[in-house]
């Protein structure tokens, strides 16, 4: 799989029923029909790298920091199929194409993300933050997962 550059015609892919900023942004089944979907802005400056995973969704490298060689990644998908291959591609794109040394992201245990797939491509749980986001009427915990490039 190869990520491709964003085009204006991909705008529909940037909104969906997933938690904002989530590393593994998968659709939440019980998202209230009248609640606004999560959206990310289309890429428009060097501050973020947003690519399209053909047929799957978007991958956004945000908080790009070229001095510290890192980015926070968030993915917005419409299904889980091909997630394992996508995650390998996300890491490879971050390290080999963007030449970053570290990528990290938010994981929310309550929504039961497939963290085994993250571990398979080298991500580790690095920190647990209580009450870090809001869902279904209450604050819930979030974790930071990250992977560091081995040179």
């Amino acid at each position: 799989m190869r990520l491709r550059g964003y085009r204006g015609s991909d705008a529909d892919l940037l909104a969906g029923p997933w938690l904002p900023g989530e590393l593994l942004g998968l659709p939440l089944a019980d998202w209230p029909p009248l609640a606004a979907p999560t959206t990310v802005p289309p890429p428009a400056d060097p501050g973020q790298e947003l690519c399209i995973a053909p047929g799957l969704g978007f991958v956004r490298y945000t908080e790009l920091d070229w001095v510290h060689r890192r980015a926070r990644v968030e993915i917005g998908l419409h299904g889980v199929d091909g997630l394992d291959v996508l995650l390998k591609t996300v890491v490879a794109h971050g390290f080999l194409t963007l030449n970053l040394s570290r990528i990290h992201g938010w994981v929310t245990p309550l929504v039961d993300p497939p963290i085994g797939l993250l571990a398979d491509v080298g991500f580790q749980r690095e920190a647990v933050l209580p009450e870090a986001t809001w869902l279904d009427g209450r604050p819930i915990d979030r974790e930071i997962w990250g992977v560091v490039r081995n040179d």
Binding site: R4, G5, E49, H93, T97
Partner: peptide, 11 residues
């Protein structure tokens, strides 16, 4: 050096 991964604005 990475044409196909570049977003529209950058192109």
């Amino acid at each position: 050096g990475d044409p196909d991964t570049r977003p529209e604005w950058e192109i």
